[in-house]
Design a protein around this nucleic acid. Sequence first.
DNA 1: CAAGAATCCTGTCAGC
DNA 2: TGCTGACAGGATTCTT
Length: 276
Amino acid sequence: MPELPEVETVMRGLAARLQGRVIRRAEVRRADLRWSFPQGLAARLTGARVLGFRRRAKYILMRLDGGDSVLLHLGMSGRMLIRLRGANDPMPHEHVALTTDDGWEVGFVDPRRFGSIDLVPTADEDGHRLLAGLGPEPLDRAFTAKVLAAALAGRRTPIKAALLDQRIVAGLGNIYVCEALYRAGIAPSRLAGETPTRRLVPEIKATLLEAIEAGGSSLRDYVQPDGELGYFQHAWRVYGREGEPCRKCPGPPICTGVARLVQSGRSTFYCPRLQA
DNA sequence: CAAGAATCCTGTCAGC
DNA sequence: TGCTGACAGGATTCTT
């Protein structure tokens, strides 16, 4: 479930294990994911020192010595695994595996193959075609109610769909959009241009921050015992809870509980009583 | 231009 | 148990 908080937590886990290390071996078993990996990826990784990490939207950037960075997206089903060298056989759908100079292996598993990997010059990371059009980071100070209102002005699409548009704000996905709208008490079908952003923006930030905190506090060094990086248990307030009671409302007949509707092909969960 | 649908791929789960 | 269909956290590309 990689949305911004999960990607952030995966990135921190990768940084804890890889930063400063030299990649001794890079194995690419399958290169045709969302797009084909760049030619020479394995060769470029082999022998490289990992200088640092950053996240942009749902992308992870891993800076290498020698002037370029690895751009990684987990897609829908991408996961990163960490294990001691030789501790296990490769998992099914483990398309890439790196071995470090201190004896660890990092695997990239992605059954649905919607993920992607590319190389980009470090000096121009944000110029990459996948990053160039992205909207603001929701946790930046610069992302304010005013900024969001300007981006939504005149738009007649539902606010739910607008918040999933990475050009408007970058990093939200289906879960956190549902959660933020619920917390802000805004109907997902409300026209984007008529959204009370002063109520919404603080809830977007709080929702994301709480999830990142949950990821950090529930994992030792961001790694679960099975070696999986960055995925954590989280109690959603509405997401996936169709038919269950709304946690803020009295029960029936006053509130019938969490409802689900489909907007542009994706499930939206919300409380019909609180989200007007 | 904007909005919605179709699309890529595989795994899982509910229902019969 | 086995089959079928619906659905899944993303984001691009194609239609309308």
